[in-house]
Computed example of a mutant assay.
Amino acid sequence: MSANQMSLQFSSRSENESFARATVAAFASQLDPTVAELTDLKTVVSEAVTNAIIHGYENDPDGVITIAASIEDDSVTVTVMDNGVGIADLEMARQPLFTTKPELERSGMGFTIMENFMDEVQITSAPGKGTIVKMTKRIESKRALVN
């Protein structure tokens, strides 16, 4: 069975974060996720898109964010990509509470939240080339919970 896929691109504007979150949730709804699973997905999409806007493009609304999502069997994979400034030290960036924007009162918990809410998170980044965050979550169908 081949994966069902979707993708979208949008301007790196904070007002598009809720659009991205709702679109991924609508796509994933075909797996009949629980409310908690949908909340997890929406949260990680929000974190990844916000990171791309604030850190990747440094609030430049001319940047473009791409989201791709796929469903295969009982898993949804969401990939958030930007062509922004990239991450100089990925291991440091993955540390809880680390932020490069303390003046914006950023908590530094974005990657930690993604890693805690998803089954798998892969981050690829290069300075001057952008960042790709690929996240996978296995969905336990409501039907499976009833049985």
Rank of each mutant, 00 (worst) to 15 (best):
E72F: 12
F111I: 12
M118C: 14
V45Q: 00
A69K: 00
K134F: 04
V45I: 09
T136C: 06
I71Q: 01
Q95C: 10
P127G: 08
I71S: 03
S12G: 10
S18I: 09
K137F: 02
M6R: 01
F111Y: 15
A48Q: 00
G86V: 05
F19H: 09
E17F: 03
Q9E: 15
S11M: 11
R106C: 12
S125Q: 09
L145K: 13
R94L: 11
F98Y: 15
A68C: 07
T39K: 15
T77C: 07
N59S: 13
E37G: 04
I132H: 10
E105C: 09
A126M: 09
T136Y: 03
M109K: 02
I132Y: 07
L90K: 11
I123N: 03
D89H: 12
F111T: 13
T112L: 04
M6Y: 07
G63K: 01
I123C: 06
M135I: 00
L97H: 15
A144E: 14
T79D: 03
M109Y: 08
G84R: 00
L104H: 07
T39I: 01
A36S: 12
G86K: 04
G108K: 07
N4Q: 10
G108W: 08
A68I: 00
E105V: 07
P61K: 05
V80M: 03
A22D: 14
R143L: 13
V64I: 13
M81I: 06
V146F: 10
E91G: 02
T136F: 02
R13D: 14
G110N: 11
T23S: 15
A28W: 04
D82H: 05
E105T: 04
V44F: 02
I113H: 02
F27E: 02
F117D: 08
T124F: 07
Q30D: 13
S46W: 11
I65D: 03
T112P: 02
K129W: 03
E103R: 07
E37S: 11
K142F: 07
D32P: 02
F27V: 01
T34F: 06
Q122N: 14
T100Q: 08
E140A: 12
S11E: 15
V45H: 04
N147Y: 15
S2C: 05
N51I: 03
T131G: 01
E115C: 08
A28L: 07
V49T: 11
D89G: 09
T39Y: 11
A26Q: 15
A52L: 06
Q9G: 13
I123A: 05
T100A: 14
G84T: 05
T23N: 09
